[in-house]
């Protein structure tokens, strides 16, 4: 006679343990943003609050994603010394 209950219990236990692994972290697989929360942790996205009161760059407004990206990319060109020197 086969003892089914322990076998079923052990199988279920192993299946539960299979969850104790790593979850994917790469962008697109792990970066889930829901209602002000990244992966369960609260945080807003960087373009949502807008430039602070003492910020010089007023080219974008709060919530303007493309405007924020454009501002950051424009600013990053300041790190390109060939752009500046030529």
């Amino acid at each position: 006679m086969i003892h089914w209950k322990p076998l079923v219990g052990a199988t279920l236990g192993m299946m539960v343990l299979a969850g104790c692994g790593e979850s994917p972290q790469q962008l697109g697989q792990a970066t889930t943003y829901k209602q002000g929360k990244y992966q369960g942790k609260p945080d807003s996205r960087p373009y949502e609050s807008g430039p602070s009161s003492y910020s010089q760059d007023k080219s974008w407004q709060a919530g303007d994603k493309t405007g924020w990206e454009k501002a950051v990319k424009t600013r990053q060109q300041a790190q390109n010394e060939y752009n500046r020197a030529e």
């Binding site: 960087p46 910020s55 760059d57 080219s59 300041a78």
Partner: peptide
């Protein structure tokens, strides 16, 4: 970053 700037060290 939320001000449209980049890390101070690199900048």
């Amino acid at each position: 970053l939320a001000e449209g700037k980049l890390p101070a060290c690199a900048e």
